[in-house]
Amino acid sequence: MARADLMPVQWVISAAPMPYPEALEAMRRRAAAIAAGDAGEAVWLLEHPPLYTAGTSAVPADLLTDRFPVYDAGRGGQYTYHGPGQRVAYLMLDLRERGRDIRCLVQGLEGWVIDTLAAYNVVAERSAGRIGVWVNRPDKGPGRADKIAAIGVRVSKWVTFHGISLNISPDLDHYAGIVPCGITDQGVTSFEDLGQLASMPEVDSTLRTTFESRFGPTVTTTDEALLRTL
């Protein structure tokens, strides 16, 4: 899904945890600016404080506790968790320059995560009928697979926002407050849970390399500069 003109995507990493409402508003404003031709594309990597978000298909009964704040995300999907040790990547991409194919976008995001995990010898795959990236867990029983990355996007005027969340070393017990993505017969996992010791900066570097192989070049931008353009 690379652009024909190979215009680089701004690559932004926020060091401090980002409050969810602030991130959501920033994404909306940036997506609107891209649609209007007033800003370029961006990928924004960050962490959130512990929280739950509800997608447009969320079922109220799947919220099992109010131990963390709950936000209406406006993206596709159901309930998910965000928190420290999880790398969230928000993608504000112009699909007018990338084929106008939302299904291809989702498959590209899944492939991006799968490529990233492969760099750490973690074999991951898609699951038929389910969005996200999964790792088979035969140690937990026949047919068991754990989700290591969630994907939820929204597209407005052919510009994307929201994106992926990849579990590096979050507290997996925090998922107990929801039915993650409405799935009751499988679990969640992380790099740490799988015995892979990788730091967030290491994974960020790999994410950038694998993103560029699928979506085209990037250019480093600070989060301060990104937010000033919103």
Rank of each mutant, 00 (worst) to 15 (best):
Val159Asp: 01
Pro180Ala: 12
Leu6Arg: 12
Gly163Leu: 07
Gln186Thr: 06
Asp5Arg: 14
Leu117Asp: 00
Glu192Met: 13
Pro69Thr: 08
Leu91Met: 15
Trp134Ser: 01
Tyr81Val: 05
Thr229Val: 12
Ile151Glu: 03
Thr189Val: 08
Pro142Gly: 14
Ala35Gly: 07
Thr209Phe: 06
Gly132Ile: 03
Val122Trp: 09
Pro138Gln: 14
Met1Pro: 05
Thr206Val: 15
Ala73Tyr: 04
Gly74Ile: 02
Ala118Trp: 05
Ala23Gln: 04
Asp94His: 09
Thr220Leu: 15
Val88His: 04
Tyr175Ala: 03
Leu63Ile: 10
Pro17Leu: 08
Ile34Tyr: 02
Thr116Ser: 10
Val179Thr: 10
Gly177His: 05
Thr80Met: 05
Arg208Val: 06
Val59Asn: 14
Tyr81Ile: 04
Gln86Asn: 11
Pro170Met: 08
Ser205Thr: 13
Pro170Val: 07
Arg137Gln: 14
Ala26Gln: 06
Leu51His: 06
Tyr120Ser: 01
Glu41Lys: 04
Asp115Asn: 06
Ser169Met: 12
Asp171Asn: 12
Ala54Asp: 02
Phe68Glu: 08
Ala176Glu: 08
Phe191His: 02
Arg144Val: 11
Val159Trp: 00
Gln107His: 15
Asn121Val: 07
Ser156Phe: 09
Thr56Lys: 15
Arg130Cys: 07
Ile151Ser: 00
Cys104Pro: 01
Tyr81Gly: 00
Gln196Met: 11
Gly182Cys: 12
Gln107Cys: 12
Met7Glu: 14
Ile13Tyr: 15
Gly141Met: 08
Gln186Ala: 09
Pro50Thr: 08
Val88Met: 12
Leu6Trp: 15
Val203Arg: 00
His174Cys: 11
Glu125Arg: 15
Phe215Val: 02
Leu109Gly: 01
Glu125Pro: 05
Val113Glu: 00
Thr80Arg: 01
Ile131Arg: 09
Arg208Pro: 02
Ala58Arg: 02
Ile13Cys: 07
Gly76Thr: 07
Glu202Ser: 03
Val123Ala: 12
Ala119Cys: 13
Ser57Asp: 10
Leu166Phe: 01
Phe215Ile: 06
Gly216Tyr: 02
Phe161Thr: 01
Thr184Met: 13
Glu125His: 15
Ala150Asn: 05
Ile148Gly: 00
Arg67Trp: 14
Ala119Gln: 07
Ile183Gly: 02
Arg75Met: 05
Gly182Arg: 08
Leu207Asn: 00
Trp11Cys: 01
Gly111Lys: 03
Ala73Trp: 05
Ser205Glu: 14
Val122Phe: 11
Asp139Phe: 11
